[in-house]
Design a binder for these strands. Sequence first.
DNA 1: ATCTTGACATTCCCTTCTGGAAGGTGGACC
DNA 2: GGTCCACCTTCCAGAAGGGAATGTCAAGAT
Lengths: 183, 183
Amino acid sequence: MPGEKSPGELNATQGSLLGFLFDGPKTGWDLLHEIEGGLSRFWNVTPSHVYRELRTLQDRRLVTAGRTGVRDRRPFTITAAGKKAFKQWIAQEPGPEQIRNPLLITLWFGRHLDEGTLAKFLDSNRKVHAERLRHYTGITAGDEHTGAVLAFGIAYEKAVIAWIDDLTSSPRTAPVGAGTRHG
Amino acid sequence: MPGEKSPGELNATQGSLLGFLFDGPKTGWDLLHEIEGGLSRFWNVTPSHVYRELRTLQDRRLVTAGRTGVRDRRPFTITAAGKKAFKQWIAQEPGPEQIRNPLLITLWFGRHLDEGTLAKFLDSNRKVHAERLRHYTGITAGDEHTGAVLAFGIAYEKAVIAWIDDLTSSPRTAPVGAGTRHG
DNA sequence: ATCTTGACATTCCCTTCTGGAAGGTGGACC
DNA sequence: GGTCCACCTTCCAGAAGGGAATGTCAAGAT
C-alpha cells in the first residue's frame, strides 16, 4: 500500500558512502579513513557501521563487491543504480542537525559543582577546541564545497572558544548572552 | 577484577534525569517537557529513552516510583543513593561532544548538485537557525548556569548564520576558510 | 447523562549506532 | 624461513533513537 517507506530510501550514512564511491572503487577501510579525514567530525561513523551499510548497499545492488584481494581487502564499486540513488538522495532536503554536548549538561547543573571543578572542565574543553582549530587552519580543502565544510568547522571552533572565554572572564557579573564577541 | 565497568556508572541521560529530579518528584512526562524547554537542543531525548532510563534508575534504587495517579501519571522521586550517584556523576569530566549535521554531508558532495538547490538548502537552514536565535533571545535564564547554556545556544546560532551568509555572499570567489568574519 | 473528541502519559517495537573482541592475512624485519 | 605486527574485516551484544500503538481522563457537545 502507498505511504509505506520506500525500500530505496537511503539514510545519511549510506548516502555519504555512495558519494565517496562515486569517484571510484574503495574498500571499507578506505572509506573509513576518507571519512575520518574530514567529514567524521560532523557525521561520525564506526567500522562496524560502515561495513554493515556496505553490505546493505550491496544487497540492494547499489554497489558491487570486487574480488577479495590481499588481506581480505574487498573493493566496492558503485553501480548505475547506486549513482542514481545517490543523485536522488543528495537532492533531498537534509535533515535537522543534532548536537550532543555533555559539557552543557554539566554546566546546566553547575550549581551542584564548585567553581574550581567547573572552571577546570571549561578549560580542558577549551584546549580541545583550540587544538582542533589549529588543526583545521593547517588544512587545504580539496574544492569549494569541502572547503565550506572546513569553514564551518573553523567558525564553530572559534565560536566555542569565544564563548568559553566570555564565560570565564566574567563568571558571575555580566548578564549571560550579552555581547558574545566584538573584534 | 578491577577495570570492569562499574555497575553504578551513569550515562549522561541518566545523570541529567537525576539532576532534574533533584529538586523534587517528577513524572516521565514532566521530565520530557522540562528537558524540551532548554537542554534538549544539546542533549536530545525521546519519550522511549526517558522512560527506559527511569526504569533502569528505578532498578538501581536511585529513584523510587510513586503510586500511579490519574492517567497513569507516575511520579519518580530521587533517593539518597540517587543524589549521591548524581553528585559523583556531575563531578566527572564530561565526555566529548558530538555533532551530526546532514547539511554538511550534502554540502561536502555539493559538486553533484546545481547551485540553486544548494542555495535553497542553505537558505532554509538559515531560516531555522534565525528562528531559533530569535527564540533564544526572548528567554530569560533561571540562573547563571542555565544562562551559560543559553549563551552557548545564542553564540552557536549566530556563528552558523554568519557562516551561511559568508558562503552565500561569495559562493565561488573568496578562498574558503579565510576570514570568516570581521565586524 | 451520555457521547465524542482530543490532549495526555506510557509502552512497545524496530532501526540505527556504538564498541570491542575475534580472526585471518600478508609484509617487514630478523 | 620464522616471527611479529599492522592491516582489514566480521561478529556480537548492547545502547540509543524514532515513532506508532495503546490506554486514559477532561471537557465540551448533544
